[in-house]
């Protein structure tokens, strides 16, 4: 199924603002992250396990155990620093 993955801040600089990604039905956000890491290159570097990273599903903060529905808008970004 198709989903959209968006990136912000340092991840956007490395990977671009967004991309369309094909993943297996029932995949979690964590599985999606692993699949993107498996591409190697910049993806493997900035999404690497152990790096400070948060994610959102359909514009709500989410944890990596959350399943990704078809057509979802997923986002990966560094810890937030507003205010």
């Amino acid at each position: 199924m198709h989903i959209t993955v968006r990136y912000f801040a340092s991840l956007r600089e490395a990977l671009g603002p967004s991309e369309s990604v094909e993943i297996a039905e029932g995949s979690t956000l964590g599985a999606l992250r692993d699949a993107l890491i498996a591409r190697g290159g910049a993806h493997a570097e900035v999404l690497a396990r152990g790096r400070a990273l948060r994610c959102a599903l359909n514009q709500l903060m989410a944890d990596e155990a959350t399943a990704v529905p078809a057509g979802a808008e997923v986002a990966f970004f560094p810890p937030v620093t507003g205010g």
């Binding site: 912000f8 801040a9 959102a56 903060m61 560094p78 937030v80 507003g82 205010g83």
Partner: peptide, 30 residues
């Protein structure tokens, strides 16, 4: 509201210094 916003609202700061531009790190104190 400020405590909530500091750690849960998606904003990111990039500051320019003599060493160049850098993304600001999140603080444990927040």
């Amino acid at each position: 509201l400020m405590d909530y916003l500091k750690t849960q609202a998606p904003f990111w700061k990039k500051e320019t210094t003599p060493e160049g531009a850098r993304w600001v790190d999140a603080r444990v104190t927040d």
